[in-house]
Amino acid sequence: MDLMGMMGKLKETQQKIEDTKKRLDSVLIDEQSTDGLLKVTITANSKIKSIAIDDSLLTDNEQLEDYLIVTLNKAIERANAVNQTELDAVAKMDMPMIPGMDNLFK
């Protein structure tokens, strides 16, 4: 492949990555506490969409904070995994093999 062809392929791949990032704004990740008292929904790009809190958690701020931290962190971990998997798939599928550029999109 010539240099112009590789540059075109690189630009095309970059556009596909941007399109994938936009699409991931609509991929929702639901997570909840083990007892179901707190539920969160975030996008695969880690934007919080909703939080549902059972009334029983509203009387203890410290407990509520703990629930939020644990549940949001679990949701963010899942969202990051989905995000990374999707972006890696696009990059690997479309990237031209250019020596030394293996980690361009990581």
Results as ranks from 00 to 15, higher is better:
residue 1 M to K: 06
residue 3 L to D: 04
residue 3 L to I: 06
residue 3 L to S: 06
residue 4 M to D: 15
residue 5 G to V: 05
residue 5 G to R: 10
residue 5 G to F: 04
residue 6 M to I: 01
residue 6 M to Q: 04
residue 7 M to D: 01
residue 7 M to H: 02
residue 7 M to Y: 02
residue 8 G to P: 08
residue 8 G to R: 07
residue 9 K to Q: 10
residue 9 K to R: 04
residue 9 K to Y: 01
residue 11 K to L: 12
residue 12 E to D: 07
residue 12 E to A: 07
residue 13 T to A: 12
residue 13 T to G: 12
residue 13 T to C: 13
residue 14 Q to M: 10
residue 14 Q to K: 07
residue 15 Q to G: 15
residue 17 I to L: 02
residue 17 I to E: 03
residue 17 I to C: 01
residue 17 I to S: 00
residue 18 E to H: 01
residue 18 E to K: 03
residue 19 D to S: 07
residue 19 D to K: 08
residue 20 T to W: 05
residue 20 T to F: 01
residue 20 T to Q: 11
residue 21 K to F: 02
residue 21 K to N: 00
residue 21 K to E: 07
residue 21 K to G: 00
residue 22 K to F: 01
residue 22 K to Y: 00
residue 23 R to H: 08
residue 24 L to V: 03
residue 25 D to W: 05
residue 25 D to I: 04
residue 26 S to R: 02
residue 27 V to K: 09
residue 27 V to E: 11
residue 31 E to A: 06
residue 31 E to R: 05
residue 33 S to N: 11
residue 33 S to M: 11
residue 33 S to P: 12
residue 34 T to I: 00
residue 35 D to R: 14
residue 35 D to A: 15
residue 36 G to Q: 00
residue 36 G to S: 00
residue 37 L to S: 00
residue 37 L to Q: 03
residue 37 L to P: 00
residue 37 L to K: 02
residue 38 L to Q: 03
residue 39 K to E: 11
residue 39 K to G: 08
residue 40 V to F: 09
residue 40 V to M: 13
residue 42 I to V: 09
residue 43 T to A: 05
residue 43 T to F: 03
residue 44 A to C: 10
residue 44 A to V: 12
residue 45 N to K: 11
residue 45 N to W: 05
residue 46 S to N: 15
residue 46 S to D: 13
residue 46 S to Q: 15
residue 49 K to D: 11
residue 49 K to P: 10
residue 50 S to P: 03
residue 50 S to F: 05
residue 54 D to K: 02
residue 56 S to G: 12
residue 56 S to K: 13
residue 56 S to H: 06
residue 56 S to D: 13
residue 56 S to C: 08
residue 58 L to C: 14
residue 59 T to L: 09
residue 59 T to I: 10
residue 60 D to H: 06
residue 60 D to V: 02
residue 61 N to E: 12
residue 63 Q to W: 14
residue 64 L to F: 07
residue 64 L to T: 12
residue 65 E to R: 09
residue 69 I to W: 09
residue 70 V to M: 12
residue 70 V to W: 05
residue 70 V to K: 09
residue 73 N to R: 02
residue 74 K to Q: 11
residue 74 K to C: 10
residue 74 K to D: 13
residue 74 K to N: 11
residue 75 A to S: 08
residue 75 A to M: 06
residue 79 A to G: 04
residue 80 N to G: 11
residue 80 N to A: 10
residue 81 A to T: 12
residue 82 V to P: 15
residue 83 N to I: 00
residue 84 Q to I: 10
residue 85 T to A: 13
residue 85 T to E: 10
residue 85 T to F: 07
residue 86 E to C: 05
residue 86 E to Q: 09
residue 87 L to E: 15
residue 87 L to I: 14
residue 87 L to R: 13
residue 88 D to M: 12
residue 89 A to K: 14
residue 89 A to Q: 14
residue 90 V to F: 01
residue 91 A to S: 13
residue 91 A to I: 06
residue 92 K to C: 05
residue 92 K to A: 10
residue 93 M to N: 15
residue 95 M to L: 13
residue 96 P to G: 08
residue 96 P to L: 07
residue 97 M to T: 11
residue 98 I to K: 14
residue 98 I to P: 15
residue 99 P to E: 05
residue 99 P to W: 00
residue 100 G to A: 09
residue 101 M to W: 00
residue 101 M to I: 02
residue 103 N to Q: 10
residue 104 L to F: 07
residue 104 L to E: 06
residue 104 L to S: 10
residue 105 F to E: 15
residue 105 F to R: 11
residue 106 K to Y: 09
